[in-house]
Amino acid sequence: MTGHAWDRVPIAAQSVEAPLSQAAIFLVLGVNDGTDAITRVRDTLGGIDDLVKTVGFRDLSARLSCIVGIGSALWDRLGEPAKPCELKSFVAIEGTPHKAPSTPGDLLFHIRAERPDICFEFERILLGALGPAVTTIDEVSGFRYFDARDLLGFVDGTANPEGHEIGEAALVGEEDPDFAGGSYVVVQKYLHDLAAWGRTSTALQEEIVGRTKIDNIELDDAAAPRKSHKTLATIVDEQGNEHDILRDNMPFGRAGYGEFGTYFIGYTRHLWVIEKMLERMFIGEPAGAYDRLLDFSTAQTGTTFFAPSRSTLAKLAADKS
């Protein structure tokens, strides 16, 4: 496997760098009150790697993986002496006319595989192990749509970093050595108005997204009166350095209920990068020139987690104090 992108990410990290899969489950849970609940959660987290092996062994080609994210409030409840320096609850963004809500969540399980039944089986056993310790807040089953397109018809995730750039973009480094190898994770569930989007001309859709629809060619909007989604989601600091994030967005939907969406999940070394990206989208750059994609896509959730390195996760699981 030498030469693949995921070989060059520090081994201490969880499977943040796992390649895009055909299926995924995004499971957000709340941890119930009481020391028994905390103890059961610790015990279950300690067995995550073994559970991945147990279920994944049924079909190794399915490449089952699971990333565990821990919310700020739960981290405080665990009573650890240290906390990732940027970890906090998702801050709601009050744009005009669109808003990014903040919704609760103590645990995130990002379950990925090439087969949806493998994802389902892992989730079923996982929830059985957690039992009464948790309450399900949100559960979304995602699928890969044709050539990695979203339900709006555009290729998604084109700007993802590759190779050694994955670690630089997604994994904490020397700036917070106690939590090196971890990653901040932001999730949002968006619902699309496909009927309104379908009434929009392809030319305007491309102007809004910032790429051509058929062949995914990036469009230059430097002289445009309104910036595209692509441009607003590109973060450059005061020194002119561009900061990437690692996305593994997935479409989801229930056509019989008229529900069509995209589940956004972003992994980042610095939480402020995603915060700045969402601020530019919902408030605008300049203010008022918001991301016009939001006229068709409504954010339903917004939650922040930290996915610790494997060694840190093992320590959290073992610490029963």
Rank of each mutant, 00 (worst) to 15 (best):
A233G: 06
T304L: 00
G173Y: 12
R58I: 03
I67T: 09
S297D: 03
F305I: 10
T234K: 09
P161S: 00
I283Q: 08
V172L: 10
A62I: 08
F90P: 02
T54I: 07
L130H: 05
T2C: 12
D106H: 15
L191I: 12
D117R: 15
I214W: 12
I137P: 09
S183E: 00
S21T: 11
A314Q: 13
D295N: 14
S201K: 15
E17F: 02
G198W: 08
G142R: 00
L29T: 00
G47I: 08
A62F: 02
H243V: 02
Y145E: 15
W272Q: 12
L152S: 13
F179S: 02
R115D: 09
G253S: 08
E165Y: 14
D36H: 15
R112D: 05
L151Q: 07
P81Y: 11
R247D: 02
G163V: 10
H229G: 02
T136D: 02
T39H: 14
D156R: 08
Q188S: 00
H243I: 01
Y290I: 05
K315N: 06
Q188M: 04
A255G: 11
V31M: 01
A317G: 05
I166C: 13
V186F: 13
K189M: 07
G284T: 10
L51P: 03
H164I: 15
L313I: 02
E285F: 13
A92G: 12
F146S: 08
T158C: 06
R310V: 06
P308T: 04
D220F: 13
G69R: 10
G131S: 12
Q188W: 07
N249G: 09
G3A: 12
